[in-house]
């Protein structure tokens, strides 16, 4: 066992105690240097806030498991691209819940609503249901226009989860590739490709001398 492993094996309570009395404990963690400079465009305050949020926890293990299943129902893997959970969407949602605490109650409440609904129908929580059972419930809350009145709380929750999942997915590296966004790189803009202009029957204003025309 090296020193790092020893540190890892110490129960959390011991560490907390030693942190409170650093002068008597040889195993006290070395404090990180204070953040005082901008880095990657972020101010010191922003870096500290992000670090604190990333360390904090909001969702329980059960809630995170439910979120993960929902994300992958919303955006599953296919032949072309991975599933939402494979690109870290549940972790993104966990972060957003800490970042924007107004979302905490609607999401936590929605997860509870979902488990309650599943227990009433199938006698078990969403995570313990079979895939067809899960889909039966999701079908009742995934289509706002035809949902029954008693399912409306679930509809609002599922719409929120759909939006969060899409945000996390299509801002991930794999999601951007899947979508086909090709920018965010220096290039020379010379108008839409000719085949696109032809498709739409469009042409450039002949009176204007554009930047790419030399």
């Amino acid at each position: 066992m090296n020193r790092r492993d020893i540190l890892k094996s110490i129960p959390l309570t011991t560490l907390s105690l030693s942190a409170a009395t650093p002068e008597v404990s040889p195993t006290a963690p070395v404090p990180k240097p204070a953040i005082t400079e901008f880095k990657n465009g972020k101010s010191p305050e922003e870096q500290r806030r992000d670090n604190a949020l990333q360390t904090a926890k909001f969702l329980t293990a059960h809630e995170l498991a439910t979120v993960t299943l929902l994300c992958d129902i919303i955006l599953p893997a296919d032949a072309r691209s991975p599933s939402a959970s494979q690109v870290g969407v549940p972790q993104f949602i966990e972060f957003m819940l800490k970042d924007q605490p107004d979302m905490q109650t609607p999401v936590r409440g929605g997860l509870s609503w979902l488990d309650h609904e599943c227990r009433q129908r199938f006698g078990k929580a969403f995570t313990d249901c079979t895939p067809p059972q899960r889909i039966a419930v999701v079908d009742d809350i995934a289509y706002p226009a035809k949902a029954k009145l008693e399912h409306k709380p679930g509809v609002a929750f599922f719409s929120r989860m759909r939006n969060l999942t899409a945000a996390g997915y299509f801002t991930s590296k794999a999601g951007i590739a899947d979508l086909g966004y090709m920018g965010n790189t220096p290039h020379q803009w010379a108008g839409p490709p000719k085949e696109v202009l032809d498709q739409f029957g469009l042409s450039f204003d002949p009176d204007v001398h554009y930047a790419d025309m030399g």
């Binding site: 992000d50 993104f92 970042d99 945000a167 801002t171 590296k173 220096p186």
Partner: peptide
């Protein structure tokens, strides 16, 4: 240290929110 230009959304934990 100030540049955010050409960063990708996944370089922000909130994806630029």
């Amino acid at each position: 240290k100030y540049i955010t230009q050409l960063k990708w959304p996944y370089e922000s934990p909130r994806r630029g929110a």
